[in-house]
Structures are given as C-alpha cells and as structure tokens.
C-alpha cells in the first residue's frame, strides 16, 4: 500500500522549479501529484510521478539532492465531509500526520490524499479497518 514519493531540495530562486520540470519533461516523466513546502530560503518539492525509478536516476544525475519516501494514497469521496471522516480515524488513534496534499482523479471523480506519517504500517491498518480505500503504488503511477 506504499507509494513512492520523491522529495527534492530546492533553493528559492527564480527558475529553479522550471529546471526540474524541464528535466522531467525531457525524460517523458509525468507528474501525478505535486506539493511544495517552503521557507524564505529553501523549499522541499514533493512529487509522485509515473516512473519513480527513472525519475530518481535522472534527477540524481542532474545533481539534485533528493530523497525517496513512502507515502500513503487514500481515496476520498468528493463530497462535503469526505476528508473529515478520514481525519477522524487519525484523531481517534492519536496518529499524527507529518504533511498531506491532495489531487482530484478524473476517471473516478474521487479525490486522492497523499499522506505522510511516521508510522505508516499502523496508519495503513487503521485506515483499512476504518473502511478507507487505499491505492497501491502502481495504481497511483498509472492514474
């Protein structure tokens, strides 16, 4: 149930993000989900792509500082309260979320939340027990 996410260290300067997307475009790598956390000096770009292994290799070769992580992809009903019912499960179990970001999936009309926790095995169990649909890595890459 793990999904590979690639994080890239980025200095906050004009054109830096474009340099990353240009590398990915050249290698025909499609971005499935993207999130950027930033401070005034630097940012952490988090990406889920269709070909994570190739993307890691090419980004390293281009000299980017990257880290691979496992995240969880939850399917959420696209309706009021959809996110809330999932977060309730986390709150009840006192499980904290490091960060999360979402995207909308056009084939099924559902939202997908990407969640990073420090105890993924436990989180997966709680979510499945709570009836939340999780996506496997391959499912997310090929969306």
């Amino acid at each position: 149930m793990h999904v590979k996410q690639i994080s890239i260290f980025m200095e906050n300067r004009a054109g830096r993000l474009e340099e990353i997307t240009s590398v990915l475009a050249k290698e025909n790598i499609n971005i499935r989900a993207i999130s950027l956390a930033d401070t005034s000096d630097f940012g952490i770009l988090r990406l889920i792509v269709n070909k994570p292994v190739d993307a890691v290799e090419i980004l390293r070769k281009e000299g980017f500082t990257i880290r691979e992580n496992e995240v969880i992809a939850c399917v959420i009903e696209d309706r009021p309260g959809g996110l809330h019912s999932m977060l309730e499960l986390f709150a009840k179990s006192e499980l904290s979320i490091e960060y999360m970001y979402g995207f909308f999936e056009r084939h099924t009309d559902k939202a997908v939340m990407i969640i990073r926790v420090n105890d993924p095995a436990r989180a997966i169990k709680i979510l499945l027990d709570g009836g939340v649909e999780l996506l496997r890595g391959e499912q997310v890459y090929s969306l």
Partner: peptide, 8 residues
C-alpha cells in the same frame, strides 16, 4: 543527501 529530509 545524508541530512536532507522531506520533513520541514
């Protein structure tokens, strides 16, 4: 890369 973390 040794100390880069994806967590702020």
């Amino acid at each position: 890369e040794a100390f880069f973390s994806d967590e702020m």
